[in-house]
């Protein structure tokens, strides 16, 4: 089990859930009007890359997870990666 430290420890730590990450990648892809098929394929591909990165870790921060996922998403869909990466700093 991998622990995700949220917002620098200001919120309770959660365990990593692939489904949750996949859902957030899907939302970013849909927000830039990506077709459904491409959305599913890309979300799976990004989560596979993140899973490989997580294989050697026991604890990560939510910021690390977001950074790694956006790095994995960038070559596949730069616009969605931009929204995913900057989501927290739009406002």
């Amino acid at each position: 089990m991998i622990d995700v430290v949220k917002r620098g420890g200001k919120r309770p730590t959660e365990s990593y859930e692939r489904a949750k990450l996949e859902q957030s990648i899907r939302s970013a892809l849909r927000s830039v009007k990506t077709p459904d098929g491409q959305t599913e394929d890309t979300a799976h591909a990004v989560c596979d890359i993140v899973d490989q990165w997580l294989a050697s870790r026991h604890e990560i921060t939510s910021e690390d997870l977001r950074r790694k996922a956006s790095e994995a998403l960038h070559p596949l869909h730069p616009e969605a990666a931009f929204i995913y990466k900057n989501y927290k700093i739009i406002m």
């Binding site: 899907r26 939302s27 927000s31 830039v32 009007k33 739009i90 406002m91």
Partner: peptide
């Protein structure tokens, strides 16, 4: 720009939920 930021997020969320 606060209203613009909020509107951008609102549209992003709405589109993200299909």
């Amino acid at each position: 720009q606060l209203g613009v930021s909020m509107l951008t997020l609102l549209s992003g969320h709405a589109l993200g939920t299909k």
